[in-house]
Simulated assay, not measured.
Amino acid sequence: MNDHQLPQVLCQLFADGGRGRSLFLTLPEGDVVQSAFWMSDEHVTGEEWTRFRAEHPRSGLWPVLLDESAQPWESGHFQPDDPALISHFTAEGFMTEVWQEWVAQVPVEALDELDPFGAFCPGLAPPGTLLAAPDAVADWCAGELAKRGTPLGLAAATRGADALAVMGWQGALHHNEWMVPLAAVVRSWEERFGARVVGMGFNTLDLSVAGPPTDLGHALHVAAEHWAFCPDNIVQGAGDLKGYAEQIVDSHHWSFWWD
């Protein structure tokens, strides 16, 4: 018998019962929430998040710091999806669709919000240059987020981006009714910017970023992607792409909030 086999409460998160998975850590007190993910009873530290992140290759469980400022997670409504569906979507396809639908619905003067791109979707920004190891940046970000006091979530996900679908997160529901395409966007950011999913709230998402844009031109292009992903970040924040771009230059933390 494997002394480090997954606790039974975690095995139920996997379709195959967690076969071949192991965990070399003591699991805090907690339980599974609506068959979607496991959540700790108490708040955890950034160091605890890091330890579970390091275990991910063996455990298959991606850790997420759960912002509970809005309401307890136990009372939430979740709609888990098969992560296999994510590969049917692309970040560029999602961005183009959002852009075209918005342009078709707004008056011409509203296009100033998307200056200098206007009605024409610029497509995906070039990849960033990694300034540090993605895991190290994620660990730093977790340390910062954990200061606000958050329980730990564990999702049976091959990669952090897939946790959005696996956990049935509905944070961007008022922008996009289905979370699977958004997970495809986050996968693309993992690959192009060394992003990692670190924190999640009922309508928030926090990513660490190891390869952020380092100049305003690149940041402006990335800002266009962020607008398609989460318009509220720009509209109710900086107000336009240029102002938002200035905020994300050299930023190792991308935080999203949907109204």
Rank of each mutant, 00 (worst) to 15 (best):
H4P: 00
H4G: 00
P7V: 04
L23D: 01
L23I: 05
L27P: 00
P28A: 03
E29S: 15
D31N: 12
Q34D: 14
F37L: 06
V44R: 10
E48D: 05
E48L: 15
E48H: 13
P57D: 01
S59C: 09
W62N: 08
W62A: 09
V64R: 02
V64I: 15
L65S: 07
P72W: 00
P72M: 00
W73Y: 07
E74N: 03
E74P: 00
Q79M: 14
P80Y: 04
P83M: 10
A84T: 08
A84Q: 08
L85G: 00
H88Q: 10
A91P: 15
G93F: 01
E97I: 09
V98Y: 14
Q100A: 13
E101A: 09
W102E: 12
V103I: 13
A104G: 12
V106Y: 10
V106T: 11
P107I: 09
L111C: 05
D112N: 04
A119D: 11
P122S: 02
L124W: 03
L124I: 12
L130A: 09
L131Q: 15
D135M: 11
D135H: 11
A138R: 05
A138D: 09
C141G: 05
A146P: 00
A146Y: 06
K147P: 00
A155G: 12
A157S: 08
A157C: 04
M167K: 02
G168Q: 04
L173E: 10
H175K: 10
E177G: 14
W178K: 06
W178H: 04
V180T: 12
P181K: 03
A183D: 07
R187L: 12
S188M: 04
W189H: 10
W189C: 09
E190D: 05
E191Y: 13
R196T: 07
T204A: 13
D206C: 03
L207W: 02
S208G: 06
S208C: 11
V209C: 06
G211C: 05
G217W: 02
H218D: 09
A219E: 01
A219S: 09
L220V: 00
A223N: 05
H226I: 13
H226N: 13
A228W: 08
I234Q: 01
Q236T: 05
A238K: 06
A238M: 05
A238P: 12
K242P: 01
I248R: 02
H253A: 09
W257R: 15
